[in-house]
Nucleic acid binder design. Structure first.
Lengths: 246, 246
DNA sequence: GAGTGGTCTAGACCACCCG
DNA sequence: GGGTGGTCTAGACCACTCG
């Protein structure tokens, strides 16, 4: 935490933040340990205290540090799991190498009333349906029906849908994905779902409805998912808002 | 957004933030509308630009505004639902007046290995078991088994458990609840669960495991929940971290 | 009282976007 | 080029906690 040569091009407060994060996750700073005061850190890194605070702020938001007014700044425990849970457009943890995705259908259809409402478009508008089957270790786990407003992404049909996350395509089109709302239920498998994921009709499935929003609030995706109850666990990290209402 | 008399005792940036939030949610500022520049707002509220930015920052984090470098600050759509989803220690949306909670059991037991691991305490340590049944509109929906390290809250047994959220009790004891991790599955109802929520054995239930952490990273609660699949929907808001990795 | 984090100022220069 | 947000400074005073 002593030697520090700022690079050009990258904001200093981010460089300091990265340096501190490395110290913490690397184990040089132990859990519960108190950091030097903001003034001392600012002097050590040769920046103003405001800049130093900006660095610390980010780590507090990440949950790596916490502050106590009038006392000091401390190292929190390592993050329990995948916090800052990025909402993902697929089945939430499909990033590892043991998962595969198979494209079942890709076509333009009129939006059902429910889909239209979720996407905030007129009922019957064109939406792109992306139906996929998701495997883990070769076993089919999840059937997913994603709906995307055709107007927002008219070029989507030419892209490599199913291979990349839909999100990647959204960002290419200039929509920064920011929020998602999921609704979760336990249901009985319909005949169709049972067929796809290879279980008995009526067996429990985790049903998920998910609406994804860009940072300007536009809904960009509405998805139904059906996952095998016996093989699928959805993990969600929740965080309390920062300084909200205070 | 013009007249503004700062009150004493409350930080100005919070007062400005509240004023702006009211403008937005009140509908005076429409979605997509551009706000005056930071400089102009600072002048209007008679504060420095840094203070003005602090106000805006919070609203951006809440998702009410978004910024575009070199362009301006804009009003996002109203929040889709209960974003900033506070993790709640109960079944997640038990705040309204149509829900009741019945205390089934309250006792100290030795921690099972799984509970001990989740709470980061030695196996067999004392934990407080709070078993509750949650009703919506008079219908039993959820059975919950909450486990709390006895060492952290030795006085909990004397409190009005079951009436207030456990969280309230945590905060009284000086633990600020900050994060939670939930694991969700669809399962078949066991005979016991089926009995409590009045469904057939084998019917689908939403199973939830939840670990709750204080802001210093200490696990304060580990909970199992079983909810009727046909009547219960869990809604979760996800947000992308701010400036994470950037 | 001494030290900490919390708030706030009045400037500055930079990076980005647009016409 | 002109306006926007992004970064940064070198101070100041306040509110909180603890010994």
């Amino acid at each position: 935490m002593v030697e520090f040569v700022p690079a050009r091009g990258i904001p200093i407060y981010i460089q300091i933040r990265d340096a501190l994060r490395a110290e913490i996750t690397g184990g040089n700073l132990r859990r519960g340990q108190q950091l030097p005061s903001e003034n001392e850190l600012a002097a050590r890194f040769h920046v103003s205290r405001m800049t130093m605070r900006e660095s610390i702020e980010g780590l507090v938001n990440e949950g790596l540090l916490y502050r106590r007014h009038g006392v000091g700044t401390f190292v929190a425990l390592p993050r329990p799991q995948r916090e800052h849970a990025k909402p993902t457009s697929l089945s939430d943890e499909d990033d590892n190498e043991h998962t595969q995705v198979k494209l079942l259908e890709l076509k333009v259809i009129p939006a059902t009333p429910k889909v239209a409402q979720a996407l905030d478009i007129p009922a019957g508008s064109h939406v792109i349906l992306v139906k996929t089957l998701h495997y883990a270790d070769g076993v089919p786990i999840t059937v997913q029906n994603a709906h995307i407003p055709y107007k927002l992404f008219p070029g989507l049909l030419n892209e490599n849908v199913g291979v990349q996350h839909l999100w990647t395509l959204f960002e290419k089109a200039g929509y920064r994905v920011r929020r998602a709302v999921q609704r979760l239920e336990a249901r009985e498998a319909s005949k169709q779902v049972a067929h796809w994921v290879n279980i008995q009709e009526g067996a429990p499935v985790l049903f998920k409805e998910c609406t994804v929003y860009a940072d300007n609030g536009t809904p960009v995706e509405f998805t139904y998912c059906y996952s095998r109850g016996d093989l699928y666990t959805l993990t969600v990290g929740l965080e309390r808002g920062r300084r909200v209402g205070q």
